[in-house]
């Protein structure tokens, strides 16, 4: 393989890994705070992309306004989802909440098919992201460069919120011990809601950038990335933000490398995520960066 192809694939891997990392964080944050796997998270990712699509097309907003509006809507949707599908079941058995999550996922997908139509839509080209840039013999879409940079900025902001602010301290307290957090006068509902908001916002960022890179939208586009990013979060150690980032990048890298170096296995690229999951769980049951403790789900 030529060096230029290698670099080409490396940028691809980096941007795919970034997208996976952004989505995986939402799974991990929600799990960390509620011990709940938000099966509808991939659908929130899909909604982020559609919100941006309609804001640009139907509402004819400039793309950057459209993106801000779409992100706000995605975050609000995530918070609404928690309110409607999870909060009423806060004291119910885990299995009820899980069923509610799966139900919410199917509901969003099917309402999506009704409202958006089952036929894929293509995102109009945005020149800033659609330009081909050349580095010597390596050429790529500008969006592939933007994605890792934007991801890095978003991750930095997230880590600052979680570790550098009072709100973040509240989030960490709530995720450790709900009642003890209440005794600290923390507004537990608000904190949980905010966690969903942030996780959904990141999924929205992921969804929008995903459509910049792969400009086809369909109501089921969140299913596979959602599943893989859940796997990424588990591989990294669910509940651990850095772990989700690591898992996301790992999965993105491996997926692209398979396509690049073992083209005959390309058909198995999705299956590979599961193989990796099984291997990691066999070797380190709590995930790469997870604490070794058994949690019953």
């Amino acid at each position: 393989m030529e060096l230029s192809t290698f670099f080409q694939q490396l940028t691809n891997a980096l941007s795919l890994g970034s997208l996976y990392a952004l989505i995986a964080i939402g799974y991990t944050m929600v799990y960390g705070i509620l011990r709940l796997i938000n099966f509808a998270h991939g659908d929130v990712f899909m909604l982020g992309a559609y919100f941006a699509f309609y804001a640009v097309t139907a509402l004819a907003m400039p793309w950057w306004v459209a993106f801000v509006v779409a992100l706000a809507l995605t975050a609000a949707f995530g918070m609404g989802l928690e309110r409607v599908a999870y909060r009423p079941l806060r004291d119910s058995p885990k299995i009820s909440v899980m069923i509610s999550a799966i139900g919410a996922s199917f509901l969003i997908e099917n309402v999506g098919i009704v409202l958006f139509g089952g036929r894929p839509k293509s995102f109009p080209s945005i020149p800033l992201f659609d330009t081909v840039v050349h580095f010597g013999s390596v050429s790529m879409l500008s969006v592939s460069l933007f994605i890792p940079v934007i991801t890095a900025v978003v991750l930095g902001a997230l880590l600052w919120i979680v570790h550098g602010t009072k709100t973040g301290l509240a989030m960490r307290a709530v995720s450790t011990d709900l009642d003890a957090a209440r005794l600290m006068a923390i507004d537990v509902n608000k904190t949980i809601s905010l966690t969903f908001g942030i996780g959904s916002l990141l999924a929205g960022v992921g969804g929008i950038m995903w459509t910049m890179k792969y400009p086809q939208l369909n109501p089921l586009m969140g299913v596979m990335p959602g599943l893989k990013c859940f796997i990424a979060a588990v591989i990294g150690g669910i509940g651990n933000i850095q772990g989700a980032v690591l898992g996301g990048f790992l999965l993105g890298m491996i997926e692209i490398m398979i396509v690049a170096f073992l083209p005959e296995l390309t058909g198995y690229r999705d299956a590979f995520a599961f193989v990796l999951l099984i291997v990691v769980l066999l070797v380190k049951p709590a995930g790469l960066l997870g604490k070794n403790q058994t949690v019953k789900v």
Binding site: K166, L169, A170, R172, T176, D177, A180, A181
Partner: peptide, 13 residues
């Protein structure tokens, strides 16, 4: 107490 947080963070909480 919050075992995964530092003494100081516990006090701040």
């Amino acid at each position: 107490i919050f075992p995964n947080l530092t003494t100081e963070e516990n006090l701040e909480l």
